[in-house]
């Protein structure tokens, strides 16, 4: 009634829009959970590739953090390196490198991933593509020799997993064999190589076959993935659609004739498990509508297999995800769920 100045005992109340209570979830909680989920594979990497894995990963993470901090300082915005997202980027970049690359490869890659992949677009939430994968693509384009030949043998195993072949990853071996068959050279040898992929299932599952730092052990990656599912930090639609379509396409088109492909090999080899659970599921660059997530996963699977079976590279996981990242805004726009009662 009276507009007298309020006394000190009068409470100063905050007025804001509802809701007035909130979840305890936060971006740092999600990001550090992803870091934790990557730890089994990281420990595995230390076992398989030794101190080099630690060294390269540490460089990638450190350069990522420093790059983000410097850019944010220059942009005069809050420095958010503690939210964990840039640490995830650093780890994932390192996980996508061969263990034999020189030290400056992860440094340059991390700088590109964070500066161009993330902050050129406005930082967390605004980057159209997965920064770590963009960093890797940059490295592949700039130093292809390092990126495709600096492999090291994993502890207790060989690069190809096959005793007779050295200097090549299993996917590259299979790709060469397929090419030999279609070219009609060394057909018998190539056929025996294709048949021998069956013997690789267990080595691939444990991680005793060569590859990038973080992608070798399916088992350790799955442990992390299960944790993320349990925390509900990743949607099931994307990995199910991704791996499912890889299985179907590999089975139909991956062999000498139709419906004879070794789909188990295609699931276990290369970076599919790392990509499907940890990179295609990156929240910022994948759709938020469930239908969009199905299509996103399917697209990743199709592009991966097109690259693996007919493209120029033995492996297509990272390019497939990058390409589908670019479709994410459109997928979200055109796969909106039907409004209740509409």
């Amino acid at each position: 009634m009276d507009e007298e100045p309020k006394t000190d005992s009068e409470p100063k109340l905050t007025v804001s829009s509802s809701p007035h209570i909130y979840t305890t979830e936060s971006i740092p909680k999600i990001m550090y959970s992803v870091v934790a989920a990557l730890m089994p594979a990281f420990i595995g990497a230390l076992y398989f590739f030794g101190w080099r894995a630690l060294w390269l990963t540490a460089i990638a993470v450190l350069v990522s953090i420093v790059t983000e901090a410097i850019i944010q300082k220059f942009r005069k915005v809050d420095i958010t390196v503690t939210d964990g997202s840039v640490i995830v980027t650093g780890i994932l970049l390192a996980f996508n490198l061969p263990a034999g690359v020189p030290w400056w490869i992860p440094a340059v890659g991390a700088f590109f991933a964070v500066a161009i992949g993330k902050h050129a677009f406005g930082g967390l939430g605004f980057n159209p593509m997965n920064p770590a994968l963009l960093g890797r693509a940059f490295l592949m384009a700039s130093w292809p020799v390092h990126m495709t030949t600096d492999w090291t043998n994993p502890h207790g195993g060989t690069l190809s997993g096959l005793a007779a072949i050295t200097g090549s990853t299993p996917l590259a071996v299979v790709k060469d064999a397929m090419k030999d068959i279609s070219d009609g050279v060394n057909v018998e040898g190539a056929q025996s190589v294709l048949e021998s992929t069956r013997d690789l299932y267990f080595p691939l599952f444990w991680g005793r076959v060569g590859g990038c730092i973080g992608e070798t052990s399916v088992l350790l990656l799955l442990i992390g993935a299960i944790y993320l599912f349990y925390k509900r930090y990743i949607p099931y639609q994307i990995p199910v659609a991704y791996i499912g379509s890889v299985i179907i396409i590999a089975w139909i088109f991956g062999g000498e004739g139709y419906f004879s492909g070794d789909w188990i090999f295609h699931v276990l080899a290369g970076g599919l498990i790392l990509g499907a659970f940890f990179m295609a599921t990156d929240m910022v660059t994948s759709p938020s509508s469930p239908k969009g997530q199905w299509i996103f996963g399917l697209g990743c699977g199709v592009i991966t297999m097109v690259i693996r079976l007919v493209g120029g590279y033995p492996e297509g996981v990272s390019y497939s995800i990058l390409l589908m990242n670019l479709l994410t805004p459109l997928l979200d726009r055109y796969t909106r769920p039907k409004v209740f009662g509409a």
Partner: peptide
């Protein structure tokens, strides 16, 4: 910024995004 995690999409009882 929105990180597009899709939690709001999952919980919206009116099924809007």
């Amino acid at each position: 910024p929105c990180i597009n995690c899709g939690r709001c999409v999952k919980v919206c009882p009116m099924n809007i995004m």
